[in-house]
Simulated assay, not measured.
Amino acid sequence: MIRMIDLHKSDIVTELYLLQRASYLVEAKLINFYEIPPLKETVGELKDCGELFLGYFLDEELAGALSYSINGKELTICRMVVHPNHFRKGIAQLLLKEVEKGNKEMAVLKVSTGKENIPARGLYLKNGFEWVGDIEVVPGLYISNFEKRRVEEQ
């Protein structure tokens, strides 16, 4: 089941913190970069990040989460995390569909991932996002940016 995560509840923030650490460690290995900001974040910083979170729960276990921010008609996916025990179960796909369904008024959806994170790149391309370019954020580390533009109905 997918539901909003309330970052004011310390137990769920701790669970989310542990989930994101497990997930981003896998990405860090894929892209050979261990300074990913969420890996350095404290529980307090996570709680105060200002992002909106959707959680995917298996029974009462948090198995995946997606966070996003909204600026006008633009939605930016900030984090997409799935616990490694639940990879390849379609959880990221379901979270992505849910954020799109709940924000139909957004004209543009944006997301970024490590250039070498092939599974994430494939997920976004499969879901209608277009690759818009790579940016070297530190020497030797490239981030791939994707967008999905929606046509407004007249």
Rank of each mutant, 00 (worst) to 15 (best):
K47T: 09
E152K: 14
M4F: 15
P38M: 03
G72W: 06
V138Q: 03
E147T: 14
D6R: 04
P84V: 08
K97D: 14
R88K: 15
G102P: 07
F146Q: 01
P119R: 08
S10W: 11
L66N: 01
S67V: 04
G102C: 04
T76H: 12
F87A: 03
A28P: 02
F57A: 01
A22C: 02
R3A: 04
E116D: 15
P84L: 10
K110R: 15
T14N: 15
N117Q: 07
Y34N: 14
P119F: 02
N145R: 14
V26L: 09
N32W: 04
N71S: 15
G128V: 01
G55C: 05
Y124N: 05
F129E: 03
S69V: 14
F129M: 01
E98H: 10
I5L: 09
E51C: 11
G122C: 06
L16S: 06
N117F: 02
Y34F: 14
Y24V: 01
N103Y: 06
F146I: 01
S144W: 04
V108Q: 13
Y124F: 09
Q154R: 15
L54N: 09
I5C: 01
A107Q: 11
F53S: 03
E45M: 07
S112W: 08
I36Y: 00
L7R: 02
I31M: 10
C49D: 10
L94M: 15
L75I: 11
F87D: 00
Y17T: 08
E130N: 13
E147L: 13
E147F: 13
N103F: 04
